[in-house]
Amino acid sequence: MLNQFIKIKSLLRVVLLLCLTVLTGCSSIQPWVKPYERQNIADPIMAFSRDPVSDNYMHHVFQAREAARGSEGTAGGGCGCN
């Protein structure tokens, strides 16, 4: 269990480091995918979840029978294309 906790904390540090890298690097690194190149990303089949009500129900099914909880989401998917 301790190992699991340490794994989560380590991964969280990596994520936060990535966030900081992105935040601090914005001034020198330019967005590399141009708006006109986002046709595939904007396709509905690239949404992490196309139907929130339906996916919420499956999260509910699992959470009622499994101890894990949190970080389920992804309804909406995303690309910031518009």
């Binding site: 992490f48 979840s49 929130p52 996916d55 919420n56 999260h59 949190g70 970080s71 389920e72 989401g73 992804t74 309804a75 909406g76 998917g77 995303g78």
Partner: peptide, 8 residues
């Protein structure tokens, strides 16, 4: 959790 995602 879904609120988290919607704003993705």
């Amino acid at each position: 959790g879904c609120l988290l995602c919607i704003e993705v």
